[in-house]
Amino acid sequence: MLAVAFGVSFVTFFLMYLAPGEPAEMIAITRYGAENLTAEQVAVIRLAEGLDQPVYLQFGRWLGHVLQGDLGVSLISGEPVLTEILARFPATLQLAVAAMAVSLLIALPAGVIAALKQHSAVDYFTMTGALLGVSMPNFWLGLLLMLLFAVNLGWFPVSGYGGWRNIVLPAITLGTGIAAVTARLTRSSMLEVLAQDYMLTARAKGLGEGRIIAGHALKNALIPVVTMVGLQFGHLLEGAVVVETVFAWPGVGKLLVDAIFARDYALLQGCVLIFAGCFVLVNLVVDLIYVWLDPRIRYEKGG
């Protein structure tokens, strides 16, 4: 866990060295523009940012700052990077939670019903829908939804941030792609559980179909789904970058894209670090839920 965290910061730091050109020069270009750039300006920056020191020292110093919550200062706005990110973070979190809710609301019932009615029309319809969902680019879906529900029908605002109406289209856009994957997994997981011997035991007891599904099948079937939902959080963050751009949603994803275009390296590093940090954190939480759901693992770990 710590090793991964260290590795993540290592990669984040050295990402910047992939850009062609010397870092000090790049920063100078960002600050003063490429036209009236002087060698002195570059030299000043090199000295001020410690870019004349050996790379490992720079990394050590950077890591030290990061551990204290200092992600540096945005080259564009001059604000601390952490402040900028924290200001944008609630918007991304709202979108992520709403999208996850949308996806689970669609995927869990659809997957369970498809499994219960395997080979029925409902099953084929759901699975075709799921395949379409994973194949559809979310930026395209976003534009289509925008076209239909915002431009033509006028039910929701085209873009922007504010009331609950604003979040509907972005959340659906982001949620449906993820729902497709979850629905497929829920279905196959449910099918596998339904074929287990303990389902026969439950039926032989005289339990009703509803109680068998809710009390015996669902908890087993959800174990792999929970793991998957954690992994999908990564897709959610990826998607957030695109969807936030489409709907002008002022989140961290939009901030990242803006930082890339502005070549704001400190902000860029900060965003990447936050994204990776969230992803790692969510997976940790998922591991905990998983352990709680599956007693077999709980006791292995508990000893």
Binding site: V4, G7, P20, G234, V272, A276, F279
Partner: peptide, 24 residues
């Protein structure tokens, strides 16, 4: 495998985005 773990800790498209942005 540690390297793989670390790289998988980044959402793929985010990393690709940054790489593409930096490489031009």
């Amino acid at each position: 495998m540690r390297t793989v773990d670390v790289l998988l800790a980044f959402p793929g498209l985010v990393l690709a985005l940054v790489l593409a942005g930096l490489l031009g």
